[in-house]
Design a binder for these strands. Structure first.
Lengths: 134, 134
DNA sequence: CTTACAACTTCAAGCCACTAGAGGTTCAAG
DNA sequence: CTTGAACCTCTAGTGGCTTGAAGTTGTAAG
């Protein structure tokens, strides 16, 4: 009844085998059952958990935040303020990062467009980098 | 004539003393002159180089790219296609990252807004993360 | 049943770009 | 001359994995 090798688990969740072992090592996922020959065998619940982790990682949550989210998801009757808070903090981070990157983008664009494709001596790219930061 | 301790260099360039030592260790900046007591002393050229590095780091260039840019800036007569190329690649990276973060942001926002602030069992945040990735 | 070989196992080290800390030395002001 | 801030070197730690070595297990074909 649905037990998967680490390779199958990797294929089904998109989390690489080596990464799954790493998650086990740091205690983010529980050690799974083993065969007689000591190979790992995963069940459906393990796959769900890995899928949750992968999804959260894709959204940029740190492993510690994911640990908290997983703990919360195990207590369905608690108010979801905490989960909400974690997500809100992440949203704020993402907003900040986008703003920062947008500013960088503008400066990079100015640099690149100012480049007349001539000699390095006249290059706006090099020149801009050499200038003190505003 | 204008030689600075590592602390002064740090203050004037915005690169921390420990980071300057690290840059020296990995060969990104040359070992500076030393006092009799073996303390580092930096000249104006060293400060320029550090300033260049700091500016480039602020724009998100990797140290290897900065190494290349520094090498290019030392040859003013070469065509600046190479410098241009490095900057263009970085611009493309930034564009990609912004796009990715914008998509993440949308999903995070949907998650957070869908949260009725009730119990974890009904929480959109937890639920969304548990769902398979689209 | 044997063989081949892909997939598994553990453990250690490497990646990036720093940062922090321990324990000792030098510089500059008073 | 004394004080103490700033310097020195060296090692180890950060996050989130990835890679590699060297050995073991699982499984399908013959």
């Amino acid at each position: 009844m649905s037990d998967f090798s680490i390779g199958e688990a990797a294929a089904r969740t998109g989390v690489k085998a080596a990464t799954i072992r790493y998650y086990e090592q740091i205690g983010l996922v529980a050690p799974p059952a083993r065969t007689e020959g000591k190979q790992r065998r995963y069940g459906r619940d393990d796959l769900s958990r890995l899928n949750f982790i992968r999804h959260a990682r894709a959204l940029g949550f740190e492993l510690d935040a994911i640990r908290d989210l997983l703990a919360l998801s195990a207590e369905p009757d608690r108010p979801c303020v905490d989960a909400d808070g974690i997500a809100l903090r992440r949203l704020a981070e993402v907003d900040g990062r986008i703003a920062q990157l947008t500013a960088l983008r503008a400066e990079l664009k100015r640099m690149v467009e100012g480049c007349g494709h001539g000699r390095v001596g006249d290059c706006r790219v090099i020149e801009t980098l050499g200038a003190p930061i505003a």
